[in-house]
Amino acid sequence: MAAIRQIDWTATMHAIAADRAKRPAGLLAARGLIAATSAKRRPLVIDGAYDKAAIMSAAIAAAKVHQARTGSTWGEALSVTLKATWALAKAARAATAH
């Protein structure tokens, strides 16, 4: 057995890049839709706490639009819009904290 170990850096970097999380299709559009509609009608953060009912209702409303636009399954659409809604809620909470 050799005392020196060789690493194929090209293959390693390709593997690292493949492991990174890919942005789901329609995530930015869903975030914009939620910010423009649902989040303005009912705030996602109240007194520094997440309003989970508001987050879920905003995600469901956006998922219906997302599913109609992309033709994705309900699970995929809800997953994308929940990620977008939680990102907006976290940003709103951080904005109110500072």
Rank of each mutant, 00 (worst) to 15 (best):
A39Y: 02
G75L: 11
D19R: 15
M1R: 09
R41I: 12
A54E: 13
A15N: 06
A15V: 02
A63K: 06
M13W: 04
A89H: 08
T10L: 12
I60V: 13
A62I: 02
I34F: 02
A97I: 08
V65H: 07
S57Y: 00
R93I: 04
A35Y: 02
A89G: 11
A15R: 09
A36K: 10
A89N: 09
A2L: 14
H66A: 09
D19F: 11
T96E: 14
P43A: 09
A21R: 02
T96N: 10
A58I: 12
W9Q: 13
I7G: 03
Q6C: 00
L78A: 12
V80I: 05
A92T: 03
A2W: 13
A21D: 02
T73G: 12
M13E: 07
S79Q: 10
T37H: 14
P24E: 00
R20I: 02
R41G: 11
S79Y: 01
A30H: 01
R93K: 14
R31A: 10
Q6N: 01
T12K: 14
T73D: 10
K90C: 05
G75W: 07
S57V: 02
L88W: 01
A18W: 00
R5D: 15
A35K: 06
A94R: 06
R69A: 06
T96D: 12
V80Y: 00
R5S: 15
V45L: 11
H14S: 15
D8H: 12
A62F: 00
L82I: 09
S38N: 15
Y50S: 04
L44R: 12
A15H: 06
A87G: 05
